[in-house]
Design a protein around this nucleic acid. Sequence first.
DNA 1: ATGCCTAATGCAATTAGA
Length: 263
Amino acid sequence: MKIATYNVNGVNGRLPVLLRWLQESQPDIVCLQELKAPDEKFPLSPIEELGYQAIWHGQKSWNGVAILSRVGTIQETRRGLPGAPEDSHSRYIEAAVGGILIGGLYLPNGNPKPGPKFDYKLRWMERLIEHAGELIGSGLPVMLAGDFNVMPTERDVYKPERWLDDALFAPEARAAYFRLLEQGWTDALRHLHPDETIYTFWDYFRNAFARDAGLRIDHLLLSPPLAKRLRRAEVDSHVRGWEKTSDHAPVWVELAPERKTRR
DNA sequence: ATGCCTAATGCAATTAGA
């Protein structure tokens, strides 16, 4: 089973690129971020025509997350993280699909730092850690996939020294990310490629993609039952070179089939 | 320190992204 995450940066402006990538890559389950569209403007029909069901949590202009599946019903289990009913950003959607529980997330950017946006990022991460602890504690096969807006280590930034004061590389944000991992999550891409330079985002500025001046900020985290099934993890970086493309590339994992328990 | 580029909104210029 192939499961992907893709920050599309506008699901309607990006529709031709999204559809082209879906047809080419044939993922079974996809988490999308930055829909930048209200619920009523989600382009369901063309996605359905490619054989996908979908659930989504939109928002006018900003944020917005979705889960697509071509492996059966998407049973939504949650939208929005617990712990802050006043939080109006559409940044988290969770569902049972294809025998796994998957949380699709768009973690706040947090710039400028310091400031209220950075405070919001850190609070959001605390809520994520709290909820993720319950998910992993369930013992179920769980995945957290999305745009985490955190480069975990210096290896994940083209020029670490330029990002020291940035919310995406701030010590507090990186520490929170590692506290999350320490619950027992496996960072799929880094686990299978421990020494490679791998990016998932390249700025639109300064010809960043051609210079490979990128960041690794889109992650797929696997709970122990899923980590055992991990076979491949890759970035479809060529998609970043397409016309009218997102500044992120799709990232995906391939999981071995679930081992049937004998009885 | 700022703009570089891009999307959405809505029709100019602002906000946000990372």
